[in-house]
């Protein structure tokens, strides 16, 4: 046995005759405007394999199940440990991160499809721009005077940290939007992720100073009132973020603000629109 195999660091052994193969049905579509269809691939089974390692195997041998050479599949991936948010796709009909989708825990054949609520780019990749645009709309940041030295931030309790930390683990993967029945490609509902981000920043002592700006970002077309309370989002979130709790909390705050805007609005409550100083 050579050194690399011993380490388990590099060499992937080729399966011997008679060993297991895994069948994948993968959505192929060259661009948004071209027609799409499934293509089948057979990939040698390997212990610990996941969907991404199988797609990599296809890259090294881009031949479909009919024995016909084809192009390697296009997919998005980066970290492969469920923290970058790149590789969300529909696997056997359910949206999830492909890197943590272990082949041995999936039903075979394994069907891979792109998320359908976002514009198609190619094969398994889609355009998630709308999620990042929503983060701008709700001003998902802390207003900072500048990056010069101004000493420590505000003190925070351990329980506040625990509450904020989980909200801050959102990887903008899009699973919550994909699973949401209210979202379609041609409407503009922002979905659960940015609503939960408003809660994250409004819970911060400095962020709270601009809470109303963010809540205003949740109002209006495509905002929080478009939520149909189907609660699918919380079930598919790979980071187990309490999205429905966030939506409920923000709904309360938005309602209060609507009333406040209606009855108490005067010049003083109109905070400056927060651009960088």
């Amino acid at each position: 046995m050579d050194e690399a195999t011993k380490v388990g660091l590099t060499t992937e052994s080729r399966p011997q005759a008679g060993e297991k193969w895994v069948t994948f049905r993968i959505w192929r579509q060259e661009s948004a405007s071209s027609p799409g269809d499934f293509e089948e691939f057979r990939v040698p089974w390997r212990k610990g394999a996941n969907v991404i390692s199988s797609l990599m195997e296809i890259q090294r041998n881009p031949v479909n199940a009919a024995g016909k050479p084809t192009t390697p599949v296009t997919w998005d991936a980066a970290c492969l440990e469920e923290v970058c948010g790149s590789c969300a796709m529909n696997i056997n009909g359910r949206v999830r991160m492909a890197c943590s989708a272990l082949v041995d825990k999936l039903e075979w054949p394994i069907t891979l499809e792109p998320m359908r609520k976002f514009p198609m780019v190619r094969d398994l990749t889609v355009d998630r721009t709308r999620m990042f645009e929503s983060l701008k709309r709700v001003k998902a940041w802390i207003e900072l005077d500048g990056t010069h030295n101004l000493g420590p931030g505000p003190r925070q309790s351990q329980s506040e940290q625990i509450q904020r930390y989980v909200l801050s683990t959102c990887i903008t993967c899009g699973s919550c939007l994909e699973a949401c029945p209210q979202i379609t490609q041609d409407n503009d509902f922002m979905g659960a992720a940015p609503i939960s981000q408003v809660r994250l920043f409004n819970l911060h002592p400095t962020g709270a100073m601009h809470a109303e700006d963010r809540l205003h970002g949740l109002m209006g077309p495509g905002g929080i009132q478009d939520c149909g309370k189907a609660q699918n989002c919380v079930q598919v979130c790979p980071k187990e973020i309490p999205l429905t709790t966030s939506i409920a909390a923000m709904n309360r705050d938005v309602t209060k603000l609507v009333v406040k805007d209606l009855f108490f609005k005067d010049k003083e409550t109109e905070t400056a629109v927060g651009g960088p100083a």
Partner: peptide
């Protein structure tokens, strides 16, 4: 130390001590 404070001001949910410090 200044960089850590800056990140703290930006809202990074750093773990805290019982006294609320980093």
């Amino acid at each position: 130390p200044g960089i850590i404070y800056l990140l703290d001001r930006m809202g990074v949910p750093f773990n805290r001590t019982p006294e609320g410090l980093l």
